[in-house]
């Protein structure tokens, strides 16, 4: 079966890969908070540059994650479009000045302030996306559960995530097999039939798939209980790695960034950097 991995762990040697899952998770969370909070263009610009550097260090190539990047770009575009459609004067309100560049039609005027607002909004997203993708692409799935547990998430939840990762390929394979056998009985899932027929047909595949998945869940949960899962409040982790010097440095770095971010952003009592007044 041909494998199409849209977004998954990419095993490479790099300083980013070498960090523990916990460090990467903390970095990702702090980074997200930092970029969500601020609309300060200067801060965002710095963060953007740091993001780019981190991405470079990770040795993940653009084409490894091109599909996801494409999707993110489409969403970003749509987001911008809708913000403009519903609030074309929001930037004017925020920055308390109005410099008209040109008028499209009716209330839709393009102002310098609105464009500046869109620029900031876009930069926020562009700051976070590479870091989020790196977190997924550079963290060994085995370490996910352990790193979630280490920041205080219940290990049961952490393990559910990890189990889902474990069984996704199995379920995919099963779906593939069932759908082939059903096609041999005349069930057509290609675009030729009407939408309703196609939906009805997909039941012929999903029903057996769901039933067999339920069976699998029973087996797995029995197997887990038989080996003592859920016995104690805590558990230890085979794959968890010790924090190294670089881990502490990274966490320290992101803490500093977060503090600077908050200080610069709220220094003058506003989240927005206003070059217009």
């Amino acid at each position: 079966m041909a494998k199409v991995a849209i977004l998954s762990y990419i095993r490479r040697e790099s300083p980013v890969h070498a960090l523990t899952g916990t460090t990467k998770l903390i970095f990702f969370l702090a980074w997200s908070v930092a970029s969500m909070v601020t609309y300060d263009t200067r801060v965002l610009l710095c963060m953007l540059m740091i993001s780019a550097v981190v991405f470079k260090i990770s040795r993940i190539r653009i084409r490894d994650i091109s599909i996801v990047l494409g999707l993110a770009a489409v969403f970003l575009l749509l987001n911008n479009l809708f913000v403009y459609l519903f609030a074309p004067e929001y930037g004017v309100e925020l920055y308390e000045s109005r410099t008209v560049l040109f008028t499209i039609a009716g209330p839709y005027t393009v102002t310098l302030q609105q464009l500046f607002y869109h620029l900031n909004m876009t930069m926020k997203v562009i700051c976070v996306v590479p870091v989020a993708l790196l977190f997924i692409a550079c963290t060994d799935p085995s370490e996910f559960a352990a790193s979630l547990a280490s920041i205080g998430v219940s290990y049961r939840i952490g393990y559910s995530v990890s189990l889902a990762l474990r069984y996704i390929p199995d379920v995919q394979r099963e779906y593939h097999n069932i759908s082939q056998a059903q096609q041999a009985r005349g069930i057509d899932l290609s675009g030729k039939d009407k939408l309703f027929t196609r939906l009805k047909n997909s039941v012929a595949i999903l029903l057996p798939l769901i039933l067999s998945s339920l069976n699998r869940i029973e087996t797995v949960s029995n197997a887990m209980e038989l080996r003592g899962f859920g016995k104690n409040k805590k558990r230890t982790w085979y794959v968890k790695r010790k924090m190294q010097r670089n881990d502490w440095l990274t966490i320290g770095f992101v803490a500093v960034v977060l503090v600077i971010d908050l200080v610069v952003t709220f220094w003058d009592g506003s989240r927005y950097f206003n070059p217009f007044v």
């Binding site: 887990m224 003592g228 899962f229 859920g230 104690n232 558990r235 230890t236 982790w237 085979y238």
Partner: peptide, 13 residues
């Protein structure tokens, strides 16, 4: 898996 649930320290595990 079982020693993890028994909280066996990593080295020993």
């Amino acid at each position: 898996f079982a020693p993890e649930n028994d909280c066996v320290p990593q080295e020993e595990m």
